Amino acid sequence: MIALPKRLFAEGYGTFWLVFGGCGSAVLAAAFPGVGIGLAGVSLAFGLTVLTMAYSIGHISGCHLNPAVTIGLWAGKRFPAKDILPYIVAQVAGAIVAAFVLMTIAQGGPDFVMGPTSLAVNGYGIQSPGHYTLMSGLIIEVVLTFGFLIVILGATDTRSPSGFAPIAIGLALTLIHLISIPVTNTSVNPARSTGPALLVGGLALQQLWLFWLAPIGGALLAGGAYRWLAGEPAAPAMVGEPMLGADQ
């Protein structure tokens, strides 16, 4: 069993990597003249952050990087209740630091102006990239987080082929962003939403509740659904195994 402080550091750093890499691609590279990476590039960047961290720290902390993933794994009987709060605190702290570092870098550019949609904040209504409604945002965040947790729980099941979980999970997050960036700028991760919203403030902070409620709701549904669908694994996943989500 790897000591909790080490796991928390891994979770904090991994979430920093996800927010800095994913949101950083949107803020610094998405619309760069001549070589802008666009929606597809930002989607791939988010997927790559999870894939690279899963192979790097998956054997240390499980590489959740997301409060909804932590809670969904608990609902799927893959994670102990006593470690939920420390994991979430570490994840949110990593996201806040990443947002601050990204803002500091972006402010060094000649065209950056801190506004209500800066730092790739999530939102609905006028905060949505496509001006989608609250109901649209709620539905897509629940549905996609549910799907994300099903992929995570299935790919990290001890009965699944070993060593390939990070690839499936990274590609799933890429797909999720390809679908939902126009709707909410894609959360499925309360920590990822919290870091930028705290710095931008205003409407982004007022709408933050949705990006905690919807992902956690989708994750809880997925945890119960996977337990019903697949039954109990042949052997419990243990901390230290190189599989994302294997923390019990």
Rank of each mutant, 00 (worst) to 15 (best):
L199M: 08
Q127R: 14
S61Y: 05
L203W: 08
H177I: 04
A204T: 09
P129V: 04
L203D: 15
A222V: 13
Q206W: 06
S118T: 11
P80G: 10
L199G: 01
L203M: 12
S118M: 09
V188I: 15
V97W: 02
A31Y: 07
A90R: 04
A3F: 11
F32R: 15
A225D: 06
G123V: 14
K82N: 12
A234M: 14
A106E: 09
G34K: 11
V42D: 06
L8I: 01
G170Y: 00
G217P: 11
S162M: 01
I167F: 12
V143E: 02
S43W: 08
N185D: 11
L85S: 11
T104C: 13
L213D: 06
M1V: 08
T156N: 09
I71Q: 03
P86Y: 11
T194C: 13
L149F: 09
C63D: 07
P67C: 09
P242N: 11
F46G: 00
P5I: 11
G24F: 11
T70H: 00
M135N: 11
F79W: 12
L44D: 09
Q248G: 01
V200K: 03
T184F: 05
I84E: 07
Q206D: 14
L102C: 06
T52W: 09
A172W: 00
L39C: 10
L51F: 12
R159C: 03
I37H: 08
